[in-house]
Amino acid sequence: MPRRKAEAGLEPNRRSELLRAAARLFVEKGFDATTTRDIADAVGMRSGSPFYHFRSKQELLKAAMVEGLDAGYGRLLAAIDGIADPGQRLRILVRTHLGTLLEEECHSPMLLGETRALDAAAHAEIAAAFDRYQQPWQATLDQLAQAGRIASAASPVRLLLFGMLNWCKHWYRPDGRLSLDQLADSAVALLLGEPPAKEDGKSSSP
């Protein structure tokens, strides 16, 4: 379905700002409790302006999730390009995912619980975007299992890994003593049962 004329006229930066603000508010307050005014105030628009560009809050939620996941997928592919070793690739996937969550302030992975507000067509679009995002993870876990470096690459392993990483959003402090590199090393060490990687002769563990 073609986008509405008003949506197509929204400047890319403003569109991105609107989607980012809506996603943040949906995470912080919940989809049902977030109002049109809340979203508009967050980006300095009039209270009804977001819905000149998106037909409904539901459309905003779907777009925030799909576009956020697809942007994250693009970052993953760029980060692991040319990386053959699955252990190294897993570490890069984890670090990139944490960067998306905690540095890029992408809230898409945190919004899965709000999809109950969406219709079947929106669910299908989000599921397709999430499937794309999971592909390099599953391929990497499969290689690690084939090499005997993890016991299983079954889908619960991947989903548990996502759950662990996404939960960092609730407790990680950028001004704390743990860097994102150290956090990524610790997560990979937990999964592989290996000591965290060392850099310049020093352990990167906390």
Rank of each mutant, 00 (worst) to 15 (best):
R3N: 09
E7V: 03
E7G: 04
R14P: 07
R15V: 07
R15L: 12
S16A: 14
L18M: 12
A21G: 08
A22N: 01
A23T: 01
R24A: 06
L25V: 07
E28Q: 13
D32R: 01
A33M: 08
T34K: 07
T35A: 07
R37G: 11
R37D: 06
R37L: 13
A40G: 07
G44V: 09
G44A: 10
M45F: 13
S49F: 10
H53F: 12
S56F: 00
K62E: 14
A63T: 10
V66R: 02
V66S: 02
G72A: 15
G72L: 15
R75M: 09
L76A: 09
L76E: 12
I80N: 11
A84N: 13
G99Q: 01
L101N: 02
L102C: 08
L102Y: 07
E103H: 07
C106F: 11
P109W: 14
L111C: 02
A117Y: 11
A120P: 03
E125L: 06
A129Y: 04
Y133C: 04
Q135N: 13
W137P: 08
Q138Y: 11
Q138K: 12
T140N: 08
L141K: 14
A145C: 00
A145R: 01
Q146M: 08
I150M: 02
A151Y: 01
A153R: 02
A153H: 02
L159M: 06
L160A: 09
G163F: 00
G163Y: 03
M164N: 06
W167L: 07
K169C: 12
W171N: 15
Y172M: 13
Q182K: 10
L183W: 10
V188K: 02
L191N: 01
G193V: 00
P196V: 11
P196L: 06
D200I: 11
P206C: 09
